[in-house]
Design a protein around this nucleic acid. Structure first.
Lengths: 238, 238
DNA sequence: AAATTAAACTTGTATATACAAGAAAAAATA
DNA sequence: TATTTTTTCTTGTATATACAAGTTTAATTT
C-alpha cells in the first residue's frame, strides 16, 4: 500500500512541508527554508518549489514576504471544513467522531434538487449519504451528500466513518475536488434539524449549500450542511 | 489618472480576462483562448499565462480541464464578500449602497479586542470605521473594521462609501490583502444589531470575524460582520 | 559610536524550452 | 457505415536561467 509512484514532485513537497507544519516541526512565525535551499534538498528548480509554496500559501499554511521568506501561519482549529483542498485540519482528529445516519445508497435525484443538472448527470443517477459529526461528543454538524453515480463501482462498500469522504474518493476512485462554490445562511433550526443536533427548534444554525466539481467531467458532488455554532465555529483561510 | 506603468504582465492578463468575463463577452461554459493563443496575443510565454489562469481559477472565474481548456464558470451573485482577492463581484453594483455609520477615525485598540496584537501594532494604534451595506434598499450587512495605523497618512479623508475599502488601500497606499482567516457563526441578533439591520431581535444572523494580512509587515486589518441572510446570502468560491 | 553605503541574501516576474498526458478531431481500417 | 487508430490540440509538470525588487546583514564612512 505504498504511495503512488508518479506523484508530481511539487505535490510531494506540499505534503512534506504540510506534515512538518502539522507536526509542529515548523511553528507559527518560523521561516521555512528559502526557495533555493528547498531546490537543493529536493534536487529541483525554483518554479517547481514555487508551485508548492504557492499552493501552501493558498491553503493558509504559510504567507510569503518579498525579500524575507515563507512564514508559517496560524495553526488550524475550528471546524475547518471549508478548506477542502488542504486536508481536514479540523479540531483535532481525536475529538471528531463521524456517525453515519444513512449509509451510501443509490437513489434518483430529488425532484426539488436546488442545483441544475445535466442530462448526463440525470441518467447516471446519484449516491446519497447522510452523516452527523460529533465534536467532543456533541452533535455539531449534519451533512447530506449527493454524488453523481459515474465511474464509482462498489463505492457503497467503503467505510466513510473512519476515512474522510474525500480521501476515499481520491484513493479508491482517483476523484479529486477541483473547484467549488458555497452559499451560506444563518437560519432558525427546524424541528428535524434541531432533533438531529440535540438543540432547541428555532435556535440559530449555520446552513450551507455547496457544489463541487471534480477532475472527472460529469462527476459533480453536492452537500447540504447544518452546523451548530454554539460551541464551535466554521473557519477557513484565503 | 492612468494605471500604473509597472503592472506585471500576468496581472494585466488577469484584469483583461476578468473584465471580459464580467462584461459577458465570455459566458458561462465558454472556452477561453488556449494558453498558446494567449501567449501570441500578449507576446509572452506559457508560464506567465499560466500564472494568470491559475489565479483566475482560484478566484472562481474559470475551471481548467486537462486536455480541453479553460472553461468560464458561474457568473457571480450573492454577497460575494468572501472572495476578497477577486473584486467585489457581489450582487451587482447598482443595487449596493454603502452607508458610513462611523467615519474613519483614529482610536486606541479596544481592550477586549479578540485578536492578538504585536507591540508594533499596539504602538501604532488603529483606524476604525463602521459601515452598513444596503442591498436593494434593505440594510443587509453591518461591518466594523479596524486597520493598524501604519503608513496611512490622510487615510481618513477618502470617501469609502463610493470606493471599496480595498481599492482605496491599494490605489492610494499600495496596501494589498495577501492572506486572511475567517470564523463564522450563526447567532441570534442582539438588540443593537437588530436595530441596525431593521430586524427582530433574536433573529438568526450570520456573524463573521476576519483577520487579514497585507503586503506591509505590521499592517493587519480586522473586520467584524453581521449579515441578515433572509433575502440574500453569502457566497464564495474555492 | 552612529549613520550611511554596499553586499548578500530573500521572493517576484519573466523568458525559453521540453516532454507527459488527457481530449477531441481526423484519418485509416474493418 | 461503424469502429479503431492516428494525429493534433489542449493543459500538466519540469528544467534552466535571468533580472528586478524587498529585506537583512556586513562593511564602510562620517
Amino acid at each position: 500500500m505504498a504511495k503512488e509512484p508518479n506523484t508530481p514532485l511539487y505535490k510531494v513537497l506540499i505534503a512534506d512541508l504540510k506534515r512538518q507544519i502539522d507536526d509542529g516541526y515548523y511553528k507559527k512565525g518560523d521561516l521555512l527554508p528559502s526557495e533555493n535551499e528547498l531546490c537543493k534538498s529536493y534536487g529541483t528548480t525554483r518554479p517547481t518549489v514555487r508551485q508548492a509554496l504557492g499552493e501552501l500559501t493558498q491553503m493558509g499554511y504559510i504567507i510569503r514576504q518579498h525579500g524575507k521568506g515563507s512564514i508559517v501561519s496560524e495553526p488550524k482549529n475550528g471546524l475547518g471544513i471549508l478548506s477542502l483542498k488542504g486536508s481536514t485540519a479540523g479540531v483535532g482528529k481525536k475529538n471528531l467522531r463521524t456517525e453515519i445516519l444513512v449509509k451510501t445508497k443509490r437513489i434518483g435525484w430529488p425532484v426539488d434538487f436546488p442545483y441544475e443538472l445535466t442530462d448526463t448527470q440525470r441518467e447516471a443517477g446519484c449516491l446519497y449519504l447522510a452523516r452527523l459529526r460529533h465534536v467532543n461528543g456533541l452533535p455539531t454538524l449534519y451533512e447530506e451528500t449527493y454524488i453523481t453515480d459515474i465511474d464509482l463501482p462498489r463505492f457503497t462498500m467503503h467505510n466513510l466513518a473512519k476515512h474522510s469522504l474525500f480521501e476515499t474518493l481520491k484513493k479508491n476512485h482517483h476523484v479529486e475536488i477541483k473547484e467549488g462554490e458555497q452559499k451560506i445562511w444563518a437560519v432558525a433550526a427546524s424541528k428535524r434539524i434541531a432533533d438531529l443536533l440535540s438543540i432547541r427548534p428555532g435556535k440559530p444554525i449555520l446552513h450551507m449549500k455547496r457544489s463541487m466539481q471534480t477532475n472527472k467531467a460529469n462527476l459533480l458532488m453536492y452537500s447540504f450542511l447544518y452546523c451548530n455554532t454554539e460551541e464551535y465555529f466554521i473557519q477557513d483561510y484565503f
